[in-house]
Amino acid sequence: MSSLQLHFDVDGEDFTRAGEASGSIKRTLKELGLTPDIIRNVAISVYEGEINMVIHANGGMIDCEVLPDVINVLLRDSGPGIADISLAMQEGYSTAPDNVRDLGFGAGMGLPNIKKYTDEMEIYSTPGVGTTIRLKVYIK
């Protein structure tokens, strides 16, 4: 079965580079001729994950796999982890610092948006070890 694999190391040292990996995935999906809805769903959910990695976890890794019927994304970081995932999944809950809130971040919509724009989402986190998110967007 044909597949396309994309890998990105997300730099946590330079906040101004956040969003580049998801932008690159978005351009690739456009070139594949996928529908705008699917592109939006993947682009927004990966974007939110990438921004979280940079704000909270000092970077991480993104792997994106495009299959004929589904797009699988794996977001991994070695950050501080999330102690209470159900709290973090609530809309409006945020621990983002003030200096990035001024750019429009920190509205507490990151994880809820990932949930909203994907068909499947799993999140695993261990405080002090890191966070992993697996998400799927089906190509219907």
Partner: peptide
């Protein structure tokens, strides 16, 4: 503009 820039990378020029 706030809507347009929402899911853009933070910065594209360095």
């Amino acid at each position: 503009i706030q809507h347009l820039r929402k899911y853009l990378p933070v910065s594209c020029n360095h």
